[in-house]
């Protein structure tokens, strides 16, 4: 039963803190644009409002896709360690999390293209290409980390950091590359081509009426929660549950600030950028790891 309690704990933190931090993020963006911005609980209202509306479905593959997306991301969430609070102590292997994460992404992609709207297919094609862009430098840097600590288990890395300092200081370049890739993963401003509202009518979300939009907003929050918590676990070390949330908030605000001021990359520019600058930095990082420590 302890496992069920821990899993429920992780999910509720993700739900509650995910949406609150998004609300705070919207307030920070508003403040940057010199306006007050919505109350912090605005995201809760948005999600619940969409769940109460009467929408449309495009057939069983659309429903299955949305449910599979949310289910996949929830499953990934359960494996992610939040500081020292872990649902399954030994099992949070890095590759398992990254690839379980793609179950959600594939489910969403399949559901959205199932609607039959070409905007959605273009959006998904862009999302997959962008993924090809940011995933390679990200995995290189993280595997250099794993190679350094000789384990691909995130919770063990968290403990090591609580002993000898945060990784962000030992691998500054790695952290920088991971953060740039994080920006791409979150789908925040510079890399927002897949869900560009003006160009392709919010990409995959074009045919999402009422509750499907709500479910996918929830999924988006959980995805952001997973991505940032992996970044925090790997680079900002141990400490208990609340310290984790604090670090999570700082990283989140920092990402929001960047996205509030930057315009949007074209999709091939984004991939071209990812495969030049971060990949080069990743290689320097790898060289340091293999040669240095």
């Amino acid at each position: 039963m302890a496992v069920a309690a821990r899993v429920a704990g992780v999910l509720l933190t993700a739900f509650f803190f995910g949406l609150t931090f998004e609300g705070i993020g919207r307030k920070v963006t508003a403040r940057i644009q010199k306006r007050y911005g919505p109350p912090w609980y605005q995201n809760f209202i948005d999600v619940l409002k969409t769940l109460t509306k009467h929408g449309w479905t495009h057939g069983w593959i659309f429903d299955f896709g949305v449910v599979m997306a949310l289910g996949g991301v929830i499953a990934t969430l359960t494996f992610v360690p939040l500081g020292n609070f872990v649902a399954f102590p030994g099992l949070d292997n890095f590759f398992v999390i990254v690839y379980l994460f793609t179950v959600g992404a594939l489910g969403m992609a399949m559901g959205m293209v199932g609607t039959g709207n070409p905007w959605a297919s273009i959006g998904v094609a862009r999302a997959l290409t962008l993924m090809l862009g940011y995933e390679v430098p990200y995995l290189i840097v993280i595997t250099s980390l794993l190679y350094n600590f000789k384990t691909s288990n995130i919770s063990t890395i968290v403990e090591i950091q609580s002993v000898n300092g945060w990784n962000i200081f030992r691998f500054p370049i790695g952290a920088l590359v991971a953060f740039i890739c994080l920006q791409g993963m979150l789908g925040k401003e510079p890399f927002e081509a897949p869900i560009a509202p003006a160009e392709i009518a919010s990409g995959p979300m074009v045919e999402l009426s009422a509750k499907y939009m709500g479910l996918l907003m929830l999924m988006n929050t959980f995805m952001e929660f997973v991505e940032i918590s992996i970044f925090v676990d790997l680079f900002l070390g141990g400490g208990n549950y609340f310290e984790f949330l604090l670090k999570y908030l700082t990283v989140w605000i920092f990402a929001i600030m960047i996205s509030a001021v930057l315009p949007r990359f074209r999709i091939e520019q984004a991939v071209y950028f990812y495969w030049t600058v971060p990949l080069l930095l990743a290689f320097i990082q790898v060289f340091l790891v293999v040669a240095g420590m």
């Binding site: 306006r35 911005g37 919505p38 605005q42 929408g55 509202p197 979300m205 074009v206 045919e207």
Partner: peptide, 16 residues
């Protein structure tokens, strides 16, 4: 004027 204070914002598609 900041409409977003009331939670009102633009959406690209009629579906949403």
């Amino acid at each position: 004027f900041d409409l977003e204070r009331f939670g009102i914002g633009p959406m690209a598609t009629p579906r949403q």
